[in-house]
Simulated scan of single mutants.
Amino acid sequence: MFSKMSRTANSVLVTLAILFIWRVEKLAEACSCSPAHPQQAFCNSDVVIRARVVGSQVIDAGNDIYGNAIKRVQYDVKMIKVFKGPNRNFDMIYTAPTSAVCGVTLETNSKEYLIAGKLESDGTMHVTLCDFIEPWEGLSATQKKSLVQRYEMGCDCKITHCTSIPCTISGPAECLWTDWVIEKSVNGNQAKHFACIKRSDDSCAWYRGSAPPKKDFLDIEDP
């Protein structure tokens, strides 16, 4: 009898251990996202703004299907400029409460950020760790200029992330992003200084320049 109870207890413990491991793995997977070039992040976002973060608070956001309370972090922001999305004021941005579920931590000392995120059905802006969020002062001059027009010009292009050599593209409407294999960083030269732009023949190529590219440019142009 004791042996049977012991086997039952062991079985329960094994099941609980498996469930715990599964839960940890699910949390880890919950915030898994592929690196994205700033242009990709811009094109994939509903809203891209420059804003100053002035405060934060944890709020209740209803209950999940099991009746557990859902928490959200509400960041109060003073918007400076809209680069993409509805031309209206966003004075609050929402995110998950922890990084385990992709929550974003922003400094609330009036620091300025470039914030890209998603627009919910109720009109609110939500952000995750997978979105492109950077201190404004940390952006390169090219990145700042590209937010106005250049990134949008390349939204029909595909940026292929090269993770190991050899790297190839599957068609002329692609740009090969090689920062990781060359610099071991996703914030390298191409991310900071280049945009993938569609040319007049519908092919795409990396562009670097201080002005919007000419209509029929053929090669990379230097400033």
Rank of each mutant, 00 (worst) to 15 (best):
120 E>F: 09
22 W>M: 08
15 T>M: 06
150 R>Q: 12
149 Q>W: 14
150 R>G: 04
129 L>H: 03
176 L>H: 06
209 G>D: 08
38 P>S: 10
93 I>A: 03
153 M>E: 02
72 R>Y: 10
124 T>M: 00
105 T>H: 01
125 M>R: 10
32 S>R: 06
191 A>R: 06
195 A>K: 03
169 I>V: 13
190 Q>L: 11
79 M>R: 02
151 Y>F: 15
137 E>D: 15
42 F>R: 05
197 I>S: 08
156 D>L: 11
7 R>P: 02
141 A>V: 13
160 T>M: 08
209 G>Q: 04
143 Q>R: 10
97 P>W: 02
218 L>A: 10
21 I>C: 13
37 H>G: 01
169 I>L: 02
62 G>A: 09
96 A>Q: 10
213 P>T: 01
81 K>H: 01
214 K>W: 01
60 D>T: 10
88 R>F: 10
50 R>K: 12
87 N>Q: 13
205 A>M: 11
159 I>L: 08
153 M>T: 04
1 M>K: 08
214 K>F: 04
39 Q>K: 05
194 F>Y: 14
193 H>K: 12
10 N>V: 09
148 V>H: 12
46 D>T: 05
171 G>Y: 00
208 R>C: 05
202 D>I: 03
80 I>K: 14
106 L>N: 03
14 V>F: 08
149 Q>K: 15
110 S>H: 07
93 I>T: 07
162 C>K: 12
128 T>K: 14
113 Y>Q: 00
208 R>M: 06
80 I>H: 11
30 A>Y: 15
166 P>W: 04
21 I>M: 13
136 W>F: 08
126 H>E: 14
123 G>W: 14
183 E>A: 11
169 I>E: 06
179 D>W: 07
124 T>L: 04
118 K>N: 13
133 I>T: 10
190 Q>G: 00
158 K>C: 02
132 F>N: 02
119 L>I: 00
123 G>C: 13
29 E>F: 11
77 V>K: 00
168 T>A: 14
121 S>D: 14
101 V>D: 04
77 V>Y: 10
198 K>A: 00
208 R>I: 02
24 V>S: 09
95 T>D: 01
1 M>F: 07
202 D>L: 11
197 I>D: 05
207 Y>K: 03
8 T>A: 11
93 I>G: 07
122 D>L: 00
196 C>T: 03
78 K>D: 07
119 L>G: 00
168 T>V: 15
18 I>M: 06
175 C>Q: 05
213 P>C: 02
128 T>W: 12
167 C>A: 09
48 V>G: 05
205 A>D: 09
110 S>F: 06
53 V>C: 03
23 R>I: 10
127 V>P: 00
11 S>C: 07
109 N>G: 03
69 A>Y: 07
10 N>T: 06
120 E>V: 10
123 G>R: 11
12 V>A: 15
88 R>V: 15
50 R>Y: 04
101 V>H: 07
19 L>K: 08
71 K>C: 05
222 D>S: 04
65 I>M: 13
3 S>N: 08
190 Q>N: 07
61 A>C: 13
97 P>C: 03
141 A>K: 10
150 R>T: 13
189 N>C: 12
130 C>V: 01
76 D>K: 12
52 R>V: 05
131 D>F: 03
